[in-house]
Simulated assay, not measured.
Amino acid sequence: MRLAMATCLALVTTLAPSLTSAEAKLPVVVELFTSQGCSSCPPADAILADMARMDGVIALSLHVDYWDYIGWPDSFAAPGHTKRQEAYALVAGEQMVYTPQIIVNGLDRVVGGDAMGVMERVHAHADATTPVELHVAREESGLRIEAGAVPLTQPLEVQLVRYIPEDEVVITAGENAGLTMAYHNIVTSWETVGTWDGAEDLSMTLSIEGSQPAVIILQEPGPGQIRAAVQVDH
């Protein structure tokens, strides 16, 4: 199943909610499940590119592998991306997955090419706050992750995401044959590196290789709601 919409929308570049002193800003984490071999996906890829430039939004592109059989193997696809999308579907009680699909903050699901629908969900989460004050810094030894103790209803998964900011692909076969596509914030790895129950301060250092940007996400198991996230560009 693939859903296509070519709606265009002028995207705002800043989301700036007001905060109370006891709350921290929760970025809007947008996950796009897409494929180079999906003819319905280019409009969604363009929307993701716009959101990648928005303040207050962490936009990530996860290329799935289940369309590779139709004539063009996606060079960014990974089985783990498909499994993550399938896990979201299982939590939601859905019987199938599709591209393009966008999931916002681990909660809301929307057709990826529906620009109006996507922005409605992004703006609905723009005022979201969190009691978790997550701090992440790149050091010579890796990434330093810290958060103060806070009551949690359930332990959170500490996830490390690495991504390529931008790359271009010339597609010569399949449904998108003849297109040259620019992709943005292309996820290269997404792994759970620990859990945190909030009873004590979170303090850990992750050893990482290479210069790819990173995102640290604290998410309820499932996958469920994203409770904190920090993007580290350098």
Rank of each mutant, 00 (worst) to 15 (best):
A4F: 12
M5G: 06
A10S: 15
L11K: 07
A22R: 09
A22Q: 14
A22G: 11
P27I: 07
V28C: 09
Q36K: 00
C41S: 12
P42N: 09
A46M: 11
L48F: 00
L48M: 07
A52N: 00
V57N: 00
S61F: 00
L62Q: 11
D65A: 04
Y66F: 15
D68F: 05
Y69E: 10
G71Q: 11
W72F: 15
S75M: 06
A78P: 01
T82V: 13
Q85R: 00
E86C: 09
Q95V: 06
Q95D: 12
M96H: 14
M96W: 14
Y98M: 04
P100K: 08
Q101R: 13
I102F: 09
I103E: 02
I103G: 00
L107Q: 15
R109L: 02
H123S: 05
H125K: 10
T130P: 04
E133S: 11
H135I: 08
E139M: 10
A147N: 03
P155D: 01
L156I: 12
E168S: 06
E168A: 11
V169Y: 08
T172F: 11
T172V: 15
A177F: 11
A177W: 12
L179T: 10
T180V: 08
N185P: 04
N185E: 05
T188C: 01
T188D: 00
E191G: 10
V193N: 02
G194L: 05
G194P: 13
G198W: 07
A199N: 10
E200C: 07
D201Y: 10
D201C: 06
M204C: 04
L206K: 09
V215K: 04
I217S: 10
E220D: 03
E220M: 13
P221Y: 04
P223M: 03
Q225H: 13
A228F: 13
A229N: 08
A229D: 03
V230P: 06
Q231N: 03
Q231S: 10
Q231C: 08
